[in-house]
């Protein structure tokens, strides 16, 4: 077959086709990564901004971070937010996917359209409307809670770190659940009805059917959406910037992204901000490793 011959002949064509993509990736991502790594080992503060050459300081930026309780607090908060957010997203998303399989088509479509609307909202518009919903004086949330007998009138959600992170979590989960629900639902529709009916004939109740029959079959989807959500919940700079505009701004309200921005662009300490960036990159790459392995494995299998 000529097709096989065409593909096997060693030619420069594939490399030529890759050049534009590789160049733009080297420029837009490669150079910044290298810059971050180099700068994280340098003293790069305000003096360097005005032309003083950067000095190599070895691990000093990292040691500075390791001995800074404020950084540890930000790191711990980011990781906790990421884990709780991703877990809540996957659990709620899976529950909604299961719900979709149990309702008539028209109602399923209603639910899907509603989820799609939330998914489609641009992040900045979502942030403004959620901040308006949680407005302490005229927000709909405090009003509805008041109707339910919980007096939150004039409660300022964004001034206390705990409720601030609760609001951030609600927003992140609201935005991320649709993707999980649709992905898991697509996985569920591949589970054949016969298998489930056989299980119920054998006397399995709903929970047993889910745990013993459905869950193992959709496990690959669940693990991929979980890892994706862990990675995405680390990049919440936009969310937190808007929330901090409207509420608390001190370091108690920071996650890694806003901390990097404040230390780097704000305070001009690029060495330290680069070190935090490198740690953030390391966490992401660690998490991505699982996603990449899984994707490659499934890609080969299909």
């Amino acid at each position: 077959m000529s097709g096989v011959l065409v593909r096997r002949r060693a030619r420069p064509a594939p490399y030529l086709l890759l050049i534009p993509a590789i160049l733009v990736l080297l420029l837009g991502m490669g150079y910044p990564v290298v810059w971050q790594i180099t700068t994280s080992f340098q003293e790069f503060g305000l003096a360097q901004q005005f032309g003083k050459p950067a000095e190599w300081v070895g691990l000093q930026n990292y040691i500075g971070l390791a001995t800074d309780p404020q950084f540890w607090a930000v790191l711990a908060r980011s990781i906790a937010f990421c884990i709780v957010g991703a877990a809540a997203t996957v659990i709620i998303g899976t529950a909604l996917a299961l719900l979709m399989t149990r309702v008539p088509a028209a109602i399923r479509l209603t639910l899907q359209v509603s989820l799609l609307l939330a998914w489609a909202m641009p992040i900045v518009a979502a942030m403004t409307v959620w901040i308006w919903l949680f407005d302490r004086r005229r927000g709909a949330v405090n009003y509805v809670l008041g109707l339910l007998g919980i007096d939150m009138h004039r409660y300022d959600w964004l001034s206390n770190p705990w409720t601030f992170f609760l609001v951030a979590g609600v927003i992140v989960v609201w935005m991320s659940v649709p993707f999980v629900a649709f992905s898991v639902y697509a996985g569920l529709t591949q589970v054949s009805d016969e298998v489930i009916e056989a299980a119920s004939l054998d006397g399995a109740n709903a929970w047993q059917r889910f745990r013993l029959v459905i869950a193992p079959l959709i496990a690959p989807v669940l693990s991929i959406v979980l890892v994706l959500n862990l990675i995405w919940d680390l990049r919440v700079f936009t969310h937190f910037t808007f929330l901090q505009d409207a509420g608390g701004k001190s370091s108690e309200f920071d996650v890694l992204g806003t901390y990097i921005y404040k230390v780097g662009a704000g305070a001009g300490d690029f060495g330290t901000s680069a070190a935090v960036s490198i740690l953030t990159l390391a966490i992401t790459i660690l998490l991505s490793w699982f996603y990449v392995r899984q994707t490659i494995k499934e890609d080969k299998a299909s």
Partner: peptide, 9 residues
């Protein structure tokens, strides 16, 4: 997967 947060500076 690389976050803009870690590269934008």
């Amino acid at each position: 997967m690389l976050p803009a947060e870690a590269l934008f500076i």
